[in-house]
């Protein structure tokens, strides 16, 4: 039965979308709370360089993307506070990484590469192996966040408060960075590097007006992300539109809806 179901590309695509949403939404909550949206963007854009390197050295794209995304995140962390404003630094690094990645890909003329599929995702082409990587990575991210939840939250509220409570904010930042790199790597196939940040931020932002505690915000964000993945895929099938962007559109509509709810309610 399972074998039969996984044989269907729509089922595989839906499972892939759900997997990414489950990991991205809780992580995205932290990205929103800590105002790391551009940070997420930079990490995601750097991943295209990872893709190019993976193809050049015939490595797994997942590994290449994780390594380069992580390197980018660490580079940003170490360069902050050295004379450049965070947004300038991220603007320089994110777009440079994207540009270098695109140039690097062009050198790989020997291999036929559909660049668009890495920029905007190719969820309908998700294989069983891809699915295993996506769910494995998503499970790892969720496990990391659940394990460190309280410490992450304390460090997010205030670094000095974290120190006084015996939590090292730098370590928590590192864990968040690692989770971000993994999420980026598993999301490339689903929404592509250009729209990963959307899957992080939009469900979390949409969940905000409905939540009273951080935990409920993360859970509602996950629910909205999953719903967006399912509805978006269905929509792209019916309307014959690109899948990744359609999923992001569905999430954006959810955001608009909950924003109206906030205006009305409370």
């Amino acid at each position: 039965m399972l074998d039969f179901m996984l044989g269907d590309f729509m089922v595989r695509a839906t499972l892939a979308g759900v997997g990414v949403a489950v990991a991205a939404a809780p992580l995205g909550s932290f990205v929103v709370w800590r105002r790391m949206a551009y940070f997420g963007d930079a990490t995601a854009h750097a991943a295209i360089l990872g893709v190019a390197l993976s193809l050049a050295f015939s490595m797994s794209i997942f590994v290449g993307a994780v390594v380069v995304a992580l390197a980018m995140a660490l580079l940003v962390s170490s360069l902050t506070g050295r004379g450049y404003a965070m947004d300038t630094l991220l603007g320089v690094l994110a777009h440079s990484a994207l540009a270098f990645g695109l140039v690097a890909v062009s050198f790989l003329s020997g291999i036929r590469i559909d660049l668009m599929s890495y920029l905007f995702g190719d969820i309908l082409a998700v294989s069983r192996e891809d699915l295993a990587v996506i769910w494995g990575g998503a499970a790892l991210v969720v496990a990391l966040i659940v394990w460190r939840w309280s410490a992450l939250l304390t460090a997010t509220l205030n670094e000095d408060l974290a120190h006084a409570s015996g939590v090292d904010p730098r370590r928590e930042q590192l864990i968040l960075t690692l989770a971000l790199a993994i999420t980026v790597a598993v999301a490339i196939k689903v929404v592509g590097v250009l729209l990963i940040a959307a899957m992080l931020i939009i469900p979390a932002a949409a969940a905000r007006p409905l939540a009273r505690t951080p935990e409920s915000m993360a859970l509602i964000a996950a629910a909205i992300g999953v719903l967006a993945a399912i509805v978006g895929l269905r929509g792209s099938y019916l309307l014959d539109t690109p899948s990744g962007p359609t999923i992001v559109c569905a999430a954006a509509i959810a955001f608009a809806a909950t924003s109206l709810f906030r205006r009305r309610g409370a």
């Binding site: 929103v32 709370w33 800590r34 105002r35 309280s150 410490a151 939250l153 304390t154 997010t156 509220l157 205030n158 000095d160 408060l161 974290a162 120190h163 006084a164 409570s165 015996g166 939590v167 979390a204 932002a205 905000r208 939540a211 009273r212 505690t213 951080p214 935990e215 409920s216 915000m217």
Partner: peptide, 26 residues
């Protein structure tokens, strides 16, 4: 040690009740 910081900015995007705040991190 109990520590009261000079200023604590909680981002408006972070919903949190007083109880949840008090329970962190333990």
């Amino acid at each position: 040690v109990g520590y009261v910081p000079q200023r604590l900015h909680i981002d408006p995007t972070l919903p949190i009740t007083v109880e949840r705040f008090l329970r962190l991190p333990g």
